[in-house]
Simulated scan of single mutants.
Amino acid sequence: MPSSRTTIPPWALLSLATNGILLLTVTLLLTRYPTASVTPAPSGSLDARASETSATEASASSTPEEPQLGPRHQWTYEQWVAQLAREAEAIAANPPDRLAILAGDSISLWFPPELLPEELTWLNQGISGEVSSGLLDRLELFDNTNPEVIFVMIGINDLLRGVSPEAILNNYRLIIQDLRWVHPNAKVVVQSILPHRGSQASWEGSAKLSDIPNSQIRDLNRELKTIAAVEGAYFLDLYPLFANSQGNLRSELTTDGLHLNDRGYYIWRSALQVFQGLQL
């Protein structure tokens, strides 16, 4: 009779191996990023930031080292939703061979197009300040697209607004169920909520961050992993790649203690590439 040690499911071994390789990859990247080159984004990538007015583009080109904020950042939530709907419609009308969707809040929104893995065409469906219920309500925006994979990250704004973990988890269940029903051929990947720097953050809402211990985020991520498995989705655990020894967001990967800098997005990009190669 085989011992219990020989009955570990193959998917569990693959998950452990993937996490180990991700951690090793990040360790190497943290030491080499300053001299790493960035591959330009494919011409097929679609991002609303590329549709800024010519005046904004001229301003940005005059001071390339200092990113400029364009008109899109002054829109209302409804205007952002309308813009994302137009982008999704454009992709649906001219579908690429391999489409990936980023669905989430500002952390997904600000993923630099030139840092996204170039083997896919990306549709960014992030909105600044988004919560899980808001994302659930607007999933229909990209119903007519045919994605190969959909990456979801949502939840930090729920916690900032005092939404209970139970409500967040229930919304995640509904999000996964909706995506798997509408896009049966797509792989749905739940990405863990990232840590923050709490009282050390310079973000304007840092006082609220201090009320959300990173231990609570870790607990929530464990529940998300279980939900993903039950609902037939994948789980990409980014948390340990961005956390320091105290469990807080690494200072070298963030602009303000909550959002990521280019180095942080480079780490995320590498995690996507390793995860896609091993799991998808």
Rank of each mutant, 00 (worst) to 15 (best):
E114S: 10
E57F: 08
L102P: 00
Q68E: 08
P42D: 10
T53R: 08
N19I: 02
S62D: 13
T27C: 05
L23R: 13
T56H: 03
L46Q: 11
L109S: 05
S59A: 15
Y33V: 03
I91H: 04
A92W: 04
L102K: 06
D47Y: 13
F111H: 09
F111G: 00
S106K: 05
L116C: 07
A50Y: 12
S45I: 09
I21G: 03
L23K: 12
D105P: 05
A93C: 04
A48M: 14
L84S: 03
P113Y: 09
P34C: 05
T18E: 04
L116T: 09
P34T: 02
L29R: 13
R98W: 03
T31I: 13
E118H: 14
T31R: 15
P67R: 03
P96H: 07
D47L: 00
R98H: 13
E57D: 04
R98E: 12
L116E: 01
P112Y: 00
L116P: 07
A50C: 00
T53P: 06
P40T: 08
L23M: 11
T63G: 06
L29E: 05
A36Y: 04
W80N: 10
L69N: 07
P117F: 04
R32M: 08
T27K: 11
L115T: 03
L23F: 01
A88R: 02
Q74L: 12
A90P: 06
I91V: 15
R86H: 08
R72D: 09
S54T: 09
T39A: 11
R72L: 13
T35M: 10
D47S: 07
T53W: 04
G70H: 12
S45Y: 10
P96C: 03
A85L: 04
S59N: 11
A55Y: 07
T53N: 09
E114H: 12
A90Q: 13
T39F: 02
T35N: 08
I101A: 04
Q79S: 06
P71W: 03
E65S: 14
A82L: 09
L22K: 08
S62F: 05
E78F: 01
Q83V: 12
L69Y: 08
L22N: 04
A55M: 09
I107R: 14
L109T: 05
T76C: 01
V38I: 15
L102I: 09
L69M: 09
S108Y: 10
P71D: 13
G104N: 05
T76G: 09
E65P: 00
S108M: 14
Q68H: 13
L84H: 08
I21L: 15
I21F: 07
L102F: 14
E89Y: 01
L28E: 09
L24M: 12
F111P: 00
S51Q: 15
E87N: 14
T76S: 15
S45D: 14
S37C: 06
R72I: 08
Q74A: 14
T53Q: 11
A60I: 02
S61K: 15
R49S: 02
I107F: 00
F111A: 11
F111R: 00
L99T: 04
R49G: 12
R49Y: 14
E89T: 07
E87D: 15
E118A: 14
W80Y: 10
T25P: 00
E78D: 13
